[in-house]
Write a protein that binds this DNA or RNA. Structure first.
Lengths: 240, 240
DNA sequence: ACGTTCATAGTGGTCAGACCACTTGACCAC
DNA sequence: GTGGTCAAGTGGTCTGACCACTATGAACGT
């Protein structure tokens, strides 16, 4: 078996996860006030600095609002949290949330063509060359996991070519949610990452510099697997 | 003058901002190692817990990687950071980064129609009613700032109707970057939030449930101001 | 001379206890 | 009512200590 690195969960992480789980599961509804740091430390059996670090991180993610002298209140993470929270919501207690997974696929289908179109507008011949190299690498392997990584590298280059910090950060967030599940998705994504031709068409469209053709080509790359995955997720949902 | 709440910057915040600024300005290139927590605390004249809280937050945002026993290394925020970092990159040292602002507008133009199309697929009559109410509220005021807030509330409802957690979090992140600048953008956004008719057309398209019509209607709402703002930003850039 | 072993110094992780700054709410005087 | 005062509780910060872990290089055996 492939040994995997041991995950050393710090006390702070444990506190963070536990409080977050309470919020996601609805045990700690929005608007409620959290116990004081001292009290939390006492209840959880850890020191106050450990609790503080966890709460600071939650505040950074806009999950809670801390006010000196006052209580720490829980915010509605659906209304305030940012995209960085996505990986934590995709898998809850080890289980994949199918509704969240579906929304990621839908977002990918919207954002992907948009980024590609921008890349077509801005990319030059150098971009076309590196993209071609990425597709070649994709075509050179048979392993589904490896192919997914190469496809990811391909899109990484597309995002670079789009020269948009917003799309870059968006891509990073989505990738952070996607990568942990890359092995589990190997078979489901096999069809998408196997259609080398579609990637070549997309690359050519970007090289040509025509946004609309590019948008259509990107959709042709992404739509089949999107559809398949969503139906697979729905089937998975029914068995649960 | 309108009194505004005093902003109390904590020591931790100051440390966070200072280190982040160093990374963004390139003083601390990616791959380098940060000084130890004790050393940082000494240099910055604060306690170690304060430094720790800041570093923990940076690790959460994937700006640095801390390893027990080893040094804390700086990561390439362009490759690893998520969308939550956007507000911090939009304004640096009080100045608006025009390239980042442009990328936000471009992303909005891609994501907005996509979300609206999803809302059209999923929304029912109830959605149509609330959207109409939001447009009515938008039409009821003349103040540009107020209109922007109502437009934001309108899009908030659209995102709700799309029933997509990914788009919801994406919207939250983009809003977090946009809201602080809402007053500065009042005049530039005036044209967009003033075209009540376009919002009504979009609402009707969503109510009708046709994704393609909706996508086109959403583009008609967003494109004019997007174009204007980008040219305005370019002009601003030249004067600098 | 080379590779291995292993103490050691330095790092992040955690804790306890203390004090300060602030918010809140009750109470009181006007 | 209005405003002032006070005490209790909260988050903010600091100090100093100890533990767990990593990297480093000297000592060792070959």
């Amino acid at each position: 078996m492939p040994l995997q690195p041991v995950s050393r969960r710090s006390v702070t992480d444990a506190v963070f996860d536990q409080v977050l789980a309470g919020m996601v599961d609805g045990e700690i509804g929005a608007g409620e006030t959290l116990p004081s740091e001292r009290r939390l430390a006492e209840v959880l059996g850890v020191s106050r600095p450990a609790v503080r670090e966890a709460l600071q991180r939650m505040a950074q993610t806009r999950l809670v609002e801390v006010r000196q002298g006052g209580a720490t209140t829980v915010r509605d993470f659906r209304k305030t949290a940012g995209l960085d929270l996505l990986p934590r919501l995709l898998v809850r207690a080890g289980n994949l949330d199918t509704a969240v997974a579906r929304s990621i696929l839908e977002a990918r289908l919207v954002v992907g063509p948009g980024v590609a179109a921008l890349a077509a507008e801005r990319g030059g011949p150098a971009v076309a060359a590196t993209l071609t190299g990425a597709v070649d690498a994709l075509a050179a392997t048979d392993d589904d996991v490896e192919r997914q990584r190469h496809a990811l590298a391909f899109w990484d280059l597309v995002v670079d070519a789009a020269d948009s910090l917003t799309f870059r950060l968006m891509f990073n967030s989505l990738r952070a949610a996607y990568e942990p599940a890359i092995e589990a998705l190997a078979s489901l994504m096999s069809e998408e990452v196997g259609q080398i031709g579609a990637y070549r068409v997309l690359t050519a469209a970007i090289a040509e510099g025509d946004p609309e053709t590019t948008r259509a080509a990107a959709e042709r790359v992404l739509r089949p697997a999107t559809h398949n995955l969503i139906t697979a997720l729905e089937a998975l949902e029914e068995t649960t």
